[in-house]
Simulated scan of single mutants.
Amino acid sequence: MQPVLKISNLTKEYQLDGTAFRALNEIKLTIPAGSFTTVVGKSGSGKTTLLRIIAGLEKATTGEINYLSGSSVQRPAFVFQEARLLPWLTVEQNIAFPLQGKLEQVELSQRVKRQLQLLGLTEFAAAYPAQISGGMAQRAALGRALIYETDLILMDEPLGALDAFNRRKLQEELQTIFAANQKTVIFVTHDVEEAIFLGEKVIVLDEGQILAEFKVPITAENSQLFTLKENIITSINS
């Protein structure tokens, strides 16, 4: 697969009490188009910082992010841990909000309708955030990201606040949604099992560096997945 972006020697430094703290240290990473990459690591390993720089929410100290020519990832979509829906808007209005006034109303309505159907939210289009479950709210947040029709979706622990049942259900839905849309996804999580379940490749970050990369077999027996999980955990704790 062609790469959708290449990250070269990406470094991010902060000043803490007059001392330089390196959150990312010369990250080198290639993300194939249409792939689902998961990123795991301890708190403070640099996972969210990496996503925020790719999204353009922060600037790197040094290094480059090069996008595939002709792709629409110059404005990647970002899904946060919390749904962050506007409580005074309906589900339909929340999904439309990022492009309100930027598209003709007919096209915007068509895009919103597609997202509602894709995410199973058509019946809840007129509901307000307080009237829907946490899982539905996260689906609406995903719809708000997908409506951009960008090639790249960045997700920062979007399922972390859900209970185990809703989390697993939404994991399965995410697999279906992204397989149908052929989007490129970079997904940050603390959950190694989630990283393996969703990802085609799992990247382990620690102290701002890539410790290891693991390819997830498309068809794998439970014993293989257990071994993969143990190898990832060992890498994180090394």
Score class of each variant (00 low, 15 high):
residue 7 I to T: 06
residue 9 N to R: 11
residue 10 L to Q: 05
residue 12 K to P: 00
residue 13 E to Q: 15
residue 16 L to D: 11
residue 17 D to L: 12
residue 20 A to P: 10
residue 22 R to L: 08
residue 23 A to N: 12
residue 29 L to D: 02
residue 34 G to M: 04
residue 36 F to W: 04
residue 38 T to A: 03
residue 42 K to W: 06
residue 46 G to P: 08
residue 46 G to A: 02
residue 52 R to T: 11
residue 59 K to A: 11
residue 62 T to A: 11
residue 62 T to R: 12
residue 69 S to V: 09
residue 70 G to L: 12
residue 74 Q to V: 10
residue 80 F to C: 06
residue 94 N to Q: 08
residue 95 I to V: 13
residue 97 F to R: 04
residue 100 Q to C: 03
residue 105 Q to R: 15
residue 105 Q to I: 13
residue 106 V to K: 15
residue 106 V to F: 10
residue 106 V to T: 15
residue 106 V to H: 14
residue 115 Q to F: 01
residue 117 Q to C: 01
residue 119 L to M: 02
residue 126 A to T: 13
residue 127 A to K: 14
residue 129 P to F: 10
residue 131 Q to F: 09
residue 132 I to S: 07
residue 133 S to M: 13
residue 134 G to K: 10
residue 136 M to E: 14
residue 137 A to Y: 07
residue 138 Q to H: 09
residue 138 Q to N: 05
residue 139 R to Q: 01
residue 139 R to M: 03
residue 140 A to K: 01
residue 144 R to P: 00
residue 148 Y to I: 07
residue 152 L to M: 10
residue 153 I to W: 05
residue 154 L to R: 08
residue 158 P to M: 07
residue 160 G to M: 09
residue 162 L to W: 08
residue 163 D to A: 02
residue 166 N to Y: 05
residue 173 E to W: 11
residue 182 Q to D: 09
residue 184 T to D: 04
residue 184 T to E: 06
residue 188 V to K: 03
residue 190 H to F: 06
residue 190 H to E: 02
residue 191 D to F: 06
residue 193 E to K: 13
residue 196 I to C: 08
residue 200 E to C: 06
residue 204 V to S: 10
residue 213 E to K: 14
residue 218 I to D: 10
residue 222 N to C: 02
residue 225 L to M: 06
residue 227 T to W: 01
residue 231 N to S: 14
residue 232 I to W: 09
residue 234 T to M: 06
residue 234 T to V: 08
